[in-house]
Design a protein around this nucleic acid. Structure first.
Lengths: 203, 203
DNA sequence: CGGATCATTGAAGTCGGTCAACGATGGTGG
DNA sequence: CCACCATCGTTGACCGACTTCAATGATCCG
């Protein structure tokens, strides 16, 4: 099952018949308020399960960032699948609990961190799948390409697009990052950013 | 296993050997930043599972609100338990996914809602275990007793204690609630509060 | 090349935070 | 039983970080 860039394959509030496994690309997951305020609740990566929540209806909309490929299963198939692939059982459990831990970190981000700390956390989070160790050690520049727009970043971090843009510019002026075309960012001091993300001020 | 009021039975960052089932009382779950900023990531009720996240260390501290009773199990016992009580399997899955849905709502709250909307959401959330239907219908006053302090409410909603207090007072002046001794609140217009929680302005 | 969209920057405004004082509450001991 | 004190909650005045509104600049595609 292939979904084109920008298309939604899960609709918030729609009856939750199926769940999905993301097999290619990335997607953004968000909810809307009646007046249009938007909160991105996560970005889905290859291997992620979506729509598992066994409630009546989906809690978020899922939109493809770039082209996305999926496998769809009816909810009723879970038991059969688990029977045939017993290891899936632990996988699902692990997926759910690691997601829960991430969520708790995101609550701290949205509830208590400043704009600078939020953006630093975001950059570190985007970088970590690449090079987990480079962040603690004082390792050199680390380039990442962000597949999402400034608006998406803002809605993910609970900020406005202007604040995100301004904070990027600040980081650039302070020599923490360098920017190449709005979607390619190089972390010049991953260590400093990582500290800032955690709320540590190095003097 | 009994825990006295105010005692912590899970420490953020400590090695996560065990998980717990809450069998009596309520607890607050929170994380801290190095400078003391605090975010309450949830309140645990009777029947909740804590510390399931199969990471190396606990992601939050759990502190008893009033006296709490618990069952403790080593993580290694999960498989044995599930073998003996096969229904536990679905229960765990359900618990995790319903928690995930709540988390997503909380992200919207912390990322996009105003102080008024946050407090309204909180009151409605506290009320809903009692009377789910009374909120949609225009049903009458609904009294709840809040077991947590203003500080806890503030740290749960990503606000300061002053803002929480001020917003309570505003709601009182607007005739939405009435307050009796800081821990007993009566919702005079549950419907209006519920709308406000969802970001709907009734004219 | 041109127009639409997205990102950046600036100026002004606002919501919630900070600092500070006051009031209420509840537990303790005289 | 009540006075005392510590803690918690409320209220006010001011401040600042982020938002809002608006204009400009960059980038992408047809």
């Amino acid at each position: 099952m292939v979904v084109q860039a920008g298309r939604c394959f899960i609709q918030e509030g729609a009856p939750a018949h199926d769940f999905y496994v993301l097999t290619g690309g990335r997607a953004k997951l968000f909810s809307l308020m009646p007046d249009g305020r938007r909160q991105i609740v996560g970005f889905a990566e290859v291997g992620d399960f979506l729509g598992l929540a066994s409630s009546e209806s989906y809690a978020f909309t899922a939109e493809a960032l770039g082209e996305v490929t999926l496998c769809r299963f009816p909810h009723s198939a879970i038991d059969r699948l688990v029977e045939r692939f017993p290891r899936l059982h632990g996988r699902l459990q692990q997926e759910a609990s690691s997601e829960l831990v991430k969520m708790q970190a995101r609550l701290m981000l949205l509830g208590r961190k400043t704009a600078r700390e939020r953006l630093a956390s975001f950059l570190v989070e985007q970088a970590s799948p690449c090079c987990a160790h480079a962040l603690k050690d004082e390792h050199g520049p680390l380039t990442l390409s962000l597949p999402m727009s400034r608006t998406d970043i803002a809605d993910y971090l609970g900020l406005t697009i202007e604040t995100v843009s301004r904070t990027f510019s600040l980081f650039r002026k302070e020599g923490l990052i360098s920017i190449r075309g709005a979607s390619s960012v190089t972390l010049l001091s991953p260590g400093l950013l990582s500290d800032m993300a955690g709320g540590i001020k190095r003097s």
